[in-house]
């Protein structure tokens, strides 16, 4: 077990975390490149920057958007806050960064981390229940839409058990192994699933605006490509 735990915390983590970082960097770079290319090709190069910025900020800090669907919005917002804070500011995690790379930052108290962890787990389950319970979401949902919140919840459940070994029915090593490996799985999933919204969201309002900025002759070129330039309407 010790060998496997060391493997999970060593090479497997290194692979998963690098995969995530490189994958996200690639996504951001590609999107930025494509956006710049679209604007280079566009006939009208003016953009309503202020409007785009406002829309972006409104969704990055969506407190003003809660009222539309209050329960779902609150669930989602709380979920996001909890899953962002705990992994980054847990004292135990920071200690690992300090040991490995010699960097550190302030931690949150462990009791707060416990509370946020439980909140994250409850909200993940609540998200799935709400998705299944409401007709429009049920109609839209794919397998991954149900699976992803639950997969994200696994490191929190196992992390909580690892922090409270006396309350855990499983061995500490096994719990920790599941914790590290499930987190590794999430890292790998981030750049290749909708979880990539964590880096794409700041740019999407801009993308949606740029999308209406067409190359001046796109229509005629499409006509030529399809051999329709002389075809009557």
């Amino acid at each position: 077990m010790e060998f496997w735990l060391a493997w999970a915390r060593g090479p497997a983590f290194l692979f998963a975390f690098s995969f995530m970082l490189l994958g996200l960097t690639r996504l951001v770079a590609l999107t930025a490149w494509e956006t710049a290319r679209a604007m280079r090709r566009a006939g009208n190069k003016t953009l309503p920057y202020r409007q785009v910025l406002t829309a972006t900020l409104k969704w990055l800090l969506p407190f003003g958007k809660l009222k539309d669907r209050l329960l779902l919005s609150l669930t989602s917002l709380t979920f996001h806050i909890a899953i962002l804070i705990v992994p980054v500011f847990l004292a135990g995690h920071i200690a690992l960064w300090a040991r490995g790379l010699g960097i550190s930052w302030p931690a949150i108290p462990n009791p707060l981390a416990d509370v946020l962890t439980i909140v994250a787990i409850i909200m993940a389950v609540a998200l799935v229940i709400q998705r299944a319970a409401a007709r429009p979401t049920r109609a839209l949902s794919r397998f991954q839409d149900y699976a992803i919140p639950l997969v994200v919840a696994v490191p929190f459940v196992s992390g909580f058990l690892a922090m409270h070994p006396l309350a855990s029915p499983f061995s500490y090593e096994a719990t920790l192994f599941v914790h590290v490996m499930s987190a590794n799985l999430v890292f790998v999933l981030i750049p290749i699933t909708k979880l990539s919204h964590m880096v794409l969201i700041p740019g999407v309002q801009l993308v949606s605006e740029v999308a209406w900025h067409w190359p001046p002759d796109a229509g005629s070129k499409v006509a030529v490509a399809l051999g329709k330039e002389n075809e009557p309407i």
Binding site: L30, T137, D145, S196, L200, I201, V210, P215, A218, L226
Partner: peptide, 24 residues
């Protein structure tokens, strides 16, 4: 042909990744 000559590839690429099916 449209993807080659227009700018629609960019939003489609981003939307296919992002769509979370939240039904808001």
């Amino acid at each position: 042909a449209v993807l080659e000559h227009s700018n629609y590839g960019l939003p489609l690429e981003v939307y296919t990744r992002l769509s979370t099916k939240c039904s808001r």
